[in-house]
Design a protein around this nucleic acid. Structure first.
Length: 286
DNA sequence: CCGTTAACCTGAGAGC
DNA sequence: TGCTCTCAGGTTAACG
């Protein structure tokens, strides 16, 4: 589900709500996520403070008691919900599309003094992993690629890591071991912004094209964060707590619509690359 | 080493 | 209404 901007928005929401708050109880209704939830999970969190919240790639990291860490991956359909008060309270965390707490698939509840945080995940592709110290956590996180919004994400990095690849640029952008945090939506949007055909192989790109791609990555992701991330599919009950970047999409899910480039008038094409839907303008993206 | 593909799981929407 | 089919913001084991 969430890509870098959405996880970043969740991180920012949690900084406001749970930082330096104590978890007084943990309830797990279903341990069968993508990986089975650790049996020590409840004990790991109970009566402890959330001392910091951070993000690497599409992972959210909760620091517990300044010393240990719970890492959350949201898979395709994972979301966090803040529930205040007693009964049918509203949820208002981040990019989720509805104010109502989902009725099904609320697998984990973290109880705080005056509210609780609920992990919901219909498809259960997400998971939570625990780390007993920073060294082990970092060993895990370091196996992921460069963060697009870091200063090291630049032409030098691209020349070194992309120019040697016999693989199309879209799959390179999606490869988390090379680049952190870009998923299917933003890969499509970045390549449209950079005017690059997603089927182009990394090794065939010139300096100008590489330049466009790394700069477009920063522009698109920063803009998505600014808009609160993307809330796609089923917007019926959208309110201020949802993201709004879905309204800024230029090509994603827009097959047969007219290309937004001025005077282009070409129709956006949909193809499949490695089982993922890919949208682009054949005229603008070379 | 590299790149590609199928599988994991549930629900929404389209078409009939 | 209801059935069947396809598709969905991701990852990775297994394969060539």
């Amino acid at each position: 589900m969430p890509e870098l901007p959405e996880v970043e928005i969740v991180k920012q929401s949690l900084e406001k709500t749970v930082k330096n708050k104590r978890i007084i109880d943990v309830k797990v209704k279903n341990r069968n996520l993508r990986f089975k939830l650790n049996n020590k999970f409840e004990k790991f969190l109970k009566n402890n403070l959330i001392t910091n919240i951070s993000r690497k790639a599409k992972y959210l990291v909760l620091e517990v008691n300044n010393s240990k860490y719970a890492l959350i991956h949201f898979g395709m359909s994972g979301t966090l919900h803040l529930v205040k008060g007693k009964s049918k309270s509203k949820t208002n965390l981040s990019f989720y599309h509805s104010q109502e707490l989902p009725k099904k698939h609320n697998h984990i509840e973290l109880m705080f003094e005056n509210f609780k945080i609920i992990y919901n995940d219909p498809r259960r592709f997400g998971y939570i992993k625990i780390f007993y110290n920073k060294k082990i956590l970092n060993r895990f996180l370091d196996s992921y690629g460069e963060e697009p919004l870091d200063s090291n994400f630049n032409l030098i990095f691209f020349k070194k890591n992309i120019l040697k690849r016999d693989k199309n640029i879209k799959n390179i952008l999606l490869d988390q071991k090379i680049i952190s945090g870009i998923g299917n939506i933003y890969a499509n949007e970045i390549l449209f912004n950079a005017k690059i055909n997603p089927k182009n192989k990394g090794k065939n790109l010139n300096s100008k094209q590489l330049n466009n791609i790394y700069k477009s990555s920063k522009i698109i992701l920063a803009k998505a964060i600014k808009f609160g991330g993307s809330s796609i599919r089923d917007f019926k009950n959208t309110n201020g707590s949802s993201g709004n970047f879905q309204n800024e999409f230029k090509v994603y899910n827009k097959s047969n619509e007219i290309c937004p480039t001025k005077h282009c008038n070409n129709k956006i094409k949909k193809i499949t690359i490695s089982n993922r839907s890919t949208f682009y303008c054949q005229k603008c993206q070379k």
